[in-house]
């Protein structure tokens, strides 16, 4: 059984009198452990698809099943709990909380679980080491470079050890070296920890890191490559 399954999903937005339908009767399956890359031009609905998978936006029609659960049927509270446990989200702009240190930002999702201080300390340390920033734990986001901020955001996404990692253009705002470092990190998480990763990008070089590439255009999906 597929880990992620979208069946007949449609999502529309209203902009004044105009209706935009970025996803039109989309069906898709993603297997557990895949590094799935979603390509497409700006405004093609890539981020919308990611929002649906994360359960932060409901579909107008169709089913979104992740890990055997139809998340579109969950109410807001249980859906938030599900998200905390199952999804790690990496934004294009890191979106770290500016008044918290790197350590505290990474610790943030763990406050949602009944963990002891020692266990939280262990997990945060582990996540920061995984992204190579344990020596920057006490730095505030303003004291970090763009690449470092994005790596802290990845540490925050993986600290609760969710099975699904969603990354929305994670290298979109980074220079070449920082982008390569972030992509290496995602690839390592996929290889070493078997994470299912769904990455949205419009950069073909970044897309090449995935095991499967799908192109989204005019609300429809087109399979491009599978490795």
């Amino acid at each position: 059984m597929a880990f992620v399954e979208l069946s007949g999903v449609t999502k529309s937005f209203h902009k004044g009198a105009t209706t935009i339908t970025p996803l039109d009767d989309v069906s898709l399956t993603i297997e557990q452990g895949e590094f799935f890359v979603l390509l497409g031009p700006s405004g093609s609905g890539k981020t919308t698809l990611l929002h649906l998978l994360a359960g932060i936006d409901p579909p107008d029609r169709g089913q979104v099943v992740v890990g055997g659960k139809d998340i579109a049927t969950l109410r807001a509270g249980p859906l938030a709990d599900w998200r905390a446990e199952h999804v790690g989200y990496v934004f294009q702009q890191h979106h770290l909380v500016p008044v918290l240190t790197a350590w505290e930002n990474v610790e943030l999702p763990l406050f949602l679980f009944p963990l002891s201080t020692a266990e939280r300390t262990k997990r945060v340390g582990f996540a920061l080491r995984a992204v190579g920033l344990d020596d920057r734990a006490d730095h505030y986001p303003r004291q970090l470079s763009g690449g470092q901020e994005q790596r802290v955001a990845i540490a925050r996404a993986i600290v609760a050890d969710p099975p699904l990692l969603l990354a929305d253009e994670p290298t979109g705002n980074l220079d070449h070296d920082s982008a390569q470092s972030v992509l290496d990190l995602l690839a390592r998480l996929h290889h070493e920890r078997g994470k299912t990763i769904v990455m949205v990008t419009h950069d073909p070089n970044a897309a090449a890191r995935g095991t499967r590439m799908v192109h989204l255009d005019k609300g429809r999906l087109h399979e491009e490559a599978r490795r």
């Binding site: 998200r83 999804v87 925050r156």
Partner: peptide, 12 residues
Amino acid sequence: ELAVMRTLGWRD
């Protein structure tokens, strides 16, 4: 920032 926290799983 609050939207990010909600995305991380913080209940409203």
